[in-house]
Write a protein that binds this DNA or RNA. Sequence first.
RNA 1: GCGCCCGUAACUCAACUGGAUAGAGUAUUCGGCUUCUACCCGAACUGUUGCAGGUUCGAGUCCUGCCGGGCGCACCA
Length: 544
Amino acid sequence: MSDALRAELSRVSVVLGAGDLDFTLEQPRDPSHGDFATNLAMLIARRERTNPRAVADRVVAALDMSATGASAVEIAGPGFLNFRLATDTLAASHLAIIAAGDSYGRSDTGAGMRVNVEFVSANPTGPLHVGHGRGAAQGDGIATLLEWTGHDVVREFYVNDAGVQIDRLAQSLWARIQQAAGRDGEIPEGGYHGAYLEDAARVILDQEGTTFSEHTPDIGVARCRELILVMQRAEQDATLADFGVHFDVISSEQHLYDAGDVDATVAHLTAAGHTFEEGGALWLRTSTWGDDRDRVLRKQDGTYTYFVPDMAYHLGKHRRGFDQAIDVWGADHHGYIPRMQAGLQALNIPEEWLSISVVQLVKVVRGTDEVKMSKRSGDFVTLRDLYEETGVDAARYWFLMRRGDSHLVFDIELAKSRTDENPVYYVQMAHARLNGIFRAADTDPDSTTGEIDLSVLGDADRDLLRKLTAFPEAVARAAREHEPHRITTYLEELARMVHGWYHGCRVLGEAAEVQHARLLLARAARQVLANGLTLLGISAPDRM
RNA sequence: GCGCCCGUAACUCAACUGGAUAGAGUAUUCGGCUUCUACCCGAACUGUUGCAGGUUCGAGUCCUGCCGGGCGCACCA
């Protein structure tokens, strides 16, 4: 709807000799400032070092109003241009919402772009906890936003299934199996004490028979390693699937070793002259690309640091042809970012290719009591524990409602509550109420068609419709910034307007033309609420 | 000690790449509405956007230095 206006402003900008400026065109927070406002005149004034309001006069004089879709323009404040849309333009935007339906809010700005979004990537050494849940919701949300803007997206999970952590896990499991079989077994130094390994030991003995415990330790640990990896992966996948998160690709660190990619990466870096030997180790000159210091690739004992497979992994992603890669990491890994970026530049991968989105850790509370998570003692809150108590909708919403880089307080009690204090219910209720109107009218929203007649409606109706038209821009911006919380913020603002409208503007029983116009508006609002919730992986119930 | 992130109303948080009088909800206090679902409306109240400078028509946003909180600083992963 704003496209015509934007195009005309661009034309004027060129006509006035300012060129193609990156001006903003946005819906002002204050409705009295009109339907759209632009800072174009102020940008031109900045270049020319002249008075913004005088420039605004020239812009207005040069505008072909008939090409803008607006009925009025005024100069306000320091030099803003405020446009009021022609009534038929707003009505046309309503038709666009109905016509697009489930697709309203989608765009093709990212068409032709292949993007890889890697998230969760939890070590297969235990159940997923609440922090992984935030990463899962965030990564899935970013991926969906990119899809909504036309990108070709692959959701990927990287499994650290090589290295000493897995060795310790296998040794710990073997110890549990020995214990379960009535023999002595001791969990090694730095091993895993969680109760889930006792469960796994029982399952394995059931499946494999008690003779499994009679293997030599070498064979037993090796078998444990295979079995526990499969079991942990299956459990993680099931937990994520029940959370509504699905991956297209699962990548394995061990596979990178087996396929020779890890050795090849080191050889590649060495051939490029970016490495050196010192103290019996092989180093990469990461400080060349902004890292604090150089980093070890191959340790004195001949094994690689985890940095190497990570580079090999990202090199592989790059070679798979993605135009962009996004990693969602927990905040406890943020110090690793400069090293990773430097490593990729050593591999000739441009810095902009990989974008790393950090999510801060989650603090879980129950009312005012903090729920402690202690991995050591084994009794931590798992992701499954959490969403089975609150419901998947509430959990996903909660993980997404704050900026990823701000700390998140997850109040289990509030997330569960069925009151308007709970934003999940508040938004879902707005959808259910609109649906209730159609149920009371005994009619189907989809059968309510036609062009909306705004002349029989008031400002409240018009403001609501205007808010609906802002949805595609909210999606576009959220996708561009990799910030799903912009959608929850938008939905809460919209829900507030819907509840107010519902109360102040009766639909059924009004004059026929008013009822029809409001049913059309209700249909559109219901559609936008549903689209926003669906985008975030949250249900839009017809009744609650 | 070094690096990154954060610091906005009593609380939880927004703020559209530097824009108009910094906004919502919660909480507190009044009044009203409550027929399509559990809601909503109006008013009051709460701000030196951690502090101090700087950049400019304009700064919560950018720069510098402090203060406070979190996280990270391995030939661990």
